[in-house]
């Protein structure tokens, strides 16, 4: 995908329009299933409905950060061969990281609310909560690094390296509940373990994940295009600046 060199590809395409509408429909259905159709929990009661936004959010965040690291690797490989190549991987890394940060924030907020009703506290410094908030801050730093005024190649390269290093924290967050004793319960679903969750709730959770995935995909694609537009604008701005400078020089002579 030699990316976006023609302007017409920049804005919404039929594919993303379909994706956008299905994201809307899917999240609406998710609200119906999660808030009305699925049953209350035998112990937690209605509070269990937080599960359907809390858990999919962090999975999407993990996925987005994984996408960020993968495209960062590809970017580093490409740009090593030729400094002007692989820009699209860099854009993909940036857009995925931003979406990931949004979903990490949602995870933290919903988690705090859920914790207040079930544990009886908004926040505890247990291993899961601490590592998650560190993950959030790390990727905020990554986004800050991407925003800096600097030469694009230098900035992208540093950001790519940072993305790779930051990803180390993702498995630590995920396994923190198994490695340490935490207030947070163990992972809701994990490979090779029988899900300890009743059928209706299980399917609602899986469906919510699907819905949020569609929404996140749509967001990442659009954010990618906006980053491309921002770059175009910066380039054009530079050219305009040079042109005006040239004119002035001509005028003064």
């Amino acid at each position: 995908m030699p990316g976006a060199n023609s302007a017409a590809k920049m804005t919404a395409t039929p594919v993303t329009r379909v994706l956008g509408v299905s994201a809307l429909a899917a999240t609406a259905l998710m609200a119906v299933l999660g808030l009305i159709v699925s049953p209350p929990d035998v112990i937690q009661g209605e509070a269990v409905r937080m599960l359907y936004v809390h858990v999919p959010s962090i999975w999407i965040a993990y996925g987005s950060f994984a996408l960020t690291s993968t495209s960062s690797v590809l970017f580093l490989r490409r740009s090593r061969r030729r400094a002007d190549q692989g820009r699209h991987y860099d854009r993909l890394a940036g857009s995925a990281a931003e979406v990931g940060v949004v979903f990490t924030a949602i995870t933290l907020i919903t988690g705090m609310l859920w914790g207040k009703v079930t544990w009886g506290t908004y926040w505890q410094w247990d291993a899961r909560l601490t590592t998650t908030v560190l993950l959030f801050v790390t990727y905020l730093g990554y986004l800050a690094l991407r925003r800096l005024p600097a030469e694009p190649t230098v900035r992208s390269r540093r950001a790519a390296v940072m993305a790779l290093i930051s990803f180390v924290n993702v498995p630590i967050v995920h396994y923190s509940v198994d490695w340490w004793r935490t207030l947070h319960q163990k992972a809701s679903l994990s490979v090779g373990r029988r899900p300890e969750i009743t059928g209706e709730m299980y399917w609602t959770l899986l469906y919510s994940t699907l819905a949020v995935t569609i929404l996140a995909t749509w967001l990442i694609i659009h954010r990618y295009r906006v980053i491309r537009l921002e770059e175009l604008r910066d380039e054009e701005g530079l050219e305009a600046l040079i042109a005006s400078r040239l004119n002035k020089d001509v005028g003064s002579h």
Binding site: P39, P40, I43, G120, Q185, K186, S188, E196, I197, T198
Partner: peptide, 18 residues
């Protein structure tokens, strides 16, 4: 100070009684 530690077991209140 008391914190309730809930487990990762979820069951429908419609099917299962306390």
């Amino acid at each position: 100070r008391m914190l309730v530690k809930h487990t990762n077991e979820y069951a429908s209140a419609n099917e299962q009684r306390v």
